[in-house]
Design a protein around this nucleic acid. Structure first.
Lengths: 124, 124
DNA sequence: TACGGCAGACTACATATGTAACCTGGTAAT
DNA sequence: ATTACCAGGTTACATATGTAGTCTGCCGTA
C-alpha cells in the first residue's frame, strides 16, 4: 500500500469525495458548486481546502484555461488505508474484530450478511 | 448507542486504551508509567490529556487518596461508534463495503480470511 | 475602452491537538 | 522541623483544522 503523505482532515475529505465522484479532474468552480450545495461552504473555504490538499500532495493542479484538480490518491486506496488504520488503532490489528463489531452492532443487515457469506465462499 | 460527547483525539485515545486495558480506574501515576514507556510522554503531557478527557466527559475523576480515573465510555462503545463513523464517512453507509474492502486489501492475512469465513458460517 | 465579475494568492482568526514547562502545597523521609 | 519529591492546577506554544475575508489582475461584455 502506497502510504499517504499526510493526514486528510474531515473537511478536506469532502473535497476529495467530490473529485472521486466526478471520476475526473475538476476546476475549482465545479468543486465549489457541489460543496456550496452540499455543505454550505463559501468559495474561499473550498479554495483553502483545495490548496491544503495540493500542499499535502493529495491533489494535483493541472493548468488549463483555468486550474483543474486531480486526486493523486484514489478513493479505494484511501479507504483501504483508513480501514486498516481503524483496525490497527482500535481492533488490536484484527480485521476480524472489526467485522465482528459490525455484525453485532446492527451495522450489517441480513442481506449484507448473506452477501458476505457468498463473498467468502467465492474468495480464496 | 449512547453517542459520544466530543471527539477523542489520537493522543487522548492512547490514554483511554490504558484505562480500558486496566479494566479499572487508575491513578495518574499508573497511566503515566504506561504511557511513558509506551510513547515516551512526559508526566505533564499525560496529565494534560487526562484533563482534557475529563473535560470532554470521557473520563470521570474519583477522589481517593489521590485521584483515580475511570472511563465513562467503554472500548466496545467507542469502537462501535468509530466503525460506524468510518462506514458513514468512507463506505457510503454500507458496512458491507467496508468488509469487502478488508477482504480485498492486502492488510488481511490468510488466517484473518479463514476466521472471517468461519464467523460467517456460524453467525446468523 | 471602461467596468464588473471571477480566479488565484494571500491573510485572518478561533478552536483543536500535540507536547510540555512552571508553580504551589502536601507528604514522606531524614 | 527541614527537605526533597510529587500530585494537581495553571500556563505555554507550535501546528492543524474549520471557516472565511481581502486584494489584484485578467477577461469578457457593454
Amino acid at each position: 500500500m502506497s502510504f499517504l503523505p499526510e493526514k486528510i482532515s474531515d473537511s478536506e475529505l469532502e473535497v476529495m469525495k467530490v473529485l472521486w465522484e466526478a471520476g475526473d479532474a475538476l476546476p475549482i468552480t465545479e468543486i465549489r458548486t457541489v460543496l456550496q450545495a452540499r455543505r454550505g461552504w463559501e468559495a474561499t473555504t473550498v479554495k483553502t481546502l483545495v490548496s491544503r490538499l495540493v500542499t499535502k500532495g493529495a491533489l494535483q493542479q493541472e493548468k488549463r484555461n483555468v486550474f483543474y484538480y486531480r486526486p493523486l490518491i484514489g478513493r479505494e486506496e484511501y479507504s483501504d488505508w483508513a480501514a486498516q488504520n481503524l483496525v490497527d488503532r482500535l481492533f488490536k490489528g484484527s480485521a476480524r474484530n472489526l467485522v465482528a463489531t459490525l455484525v453485532k452492532s446492527e451495522g450489517l443487515s441480513a442481506e449484507d450478511i448473506a452477501e458476505l457469506r457468498d463473498m467468502f465462499k467465492v474468495e480464496d
